[in-house]
């Protein structure tokens, strides 16, 4: 059997995903954060950005970074079906990354949210963008979500008032290890979209251009003394 034939067998079937239209958000600092889809050829920069955080235990950065690293690598190597990765970019520098999986026309599987720049609600904005992609762009009815940190639980489960479907296990289960699964439904999203999700479209050419070439952060507040 030819290697490319074997490779075909290893790859999951893909559903072509509608592209996420980029947007720009003015953060409280006045900085413009462009939110756009990451491209597969940018994987190296994404992995290089995520990698240092694997060693940060506080706020569960280690588990989120380790899992996201594997998921993004899986996306690059065609081992995860229908994954999408969004990046928040300020002046070209990656401020945060979110990734997710489109399971079917009705269901999305939220994977991870990694806020690199802190204190400006970058994570909250990117999570909202991810949900926007699931429900408004891809047209799903529900997204399965789990939290791996108290911050995540507070931000997603409590602030979005997600439905607790953990009692329906194993019928309802996130792919992230059987932990309690919460659900964002279209109805819940309609109730919170206005207060959680923002951004201007189309992105002005100048801002879009600034986010064209991704740059790895040279410093991390999570890792004092880190210099790239």
């Amino acid at each position: 059997m030819a290697i490319d034939e074997m490779e075909k067998k290893l790859r999951p079937p893909e559903i072509p995903l509608k592209p996420y239209p980029p947007k720009v958000i003015t953060l409280a600092s006045g900085e413009k954060m462009v939110v756009r889809e990451a491209r597969r050829e940018e994987t190296g920069i994404l992995l290089g950005t995520i990698y240092p955080l694997i060693g940060v235990p506080s706020d569960f950065y280690d588990i989120v970074a380790a899992r996201m690293y594997a998921e993004v690598l899986g996306w690059y190597r065609y081992r995860v079906a229908n994954e999408f990765v969004l990046v928040g970019v300020i002046d070209g520098v990656i401020a945060g990354i979110v990734n997710s999986r489109h399971v079917s026309s009705k269901l999305g599987m939220s994977l991870h949210t990694l806020a690199i720049k802190r204190g400006l609600r970058v994570g909250a904005q990117l999570f909202a963008a991810k949900m926007e992609n699931h429900i408004d762009v891809l047209g799903e009815e529900e997204v399965y979500i789990v939290a791996e940190s108290p911050n995540g639980f507070k931000r997603w489960m409590i602030e979005y008032q997600l439905e607790d479907r953990s009692s329906q296990y194993p019928e309802v289960r996130s792919e992230l290890g059987g932990v309690p699964t919460y659900v964002l439904t279209r109805k819940l999203w309609d109730a919170v979209r206005e207060v959680k999700c923002t951004g201007t479209r189309p992105v002005p050419e100048k801002d879009l251009k600034s986010a064209e070439k991704l740059i790895m952060p040279s410093e991390y507040v999570q890792i004092p003394g880190f210099k790239r």
Binding site: T26, S29, T198
Partner: peptide, 15 residues
């Protein structure tokens, strides 16, 4: 922080 970002701009209500 800037007044545009937290009060005047189109995303201020969410930011």
């Amino acid at each position: 922080c800037t007044i545009e970002a937290i009060a005047d701009g189109p995303e201020a209500a969410v930011v």
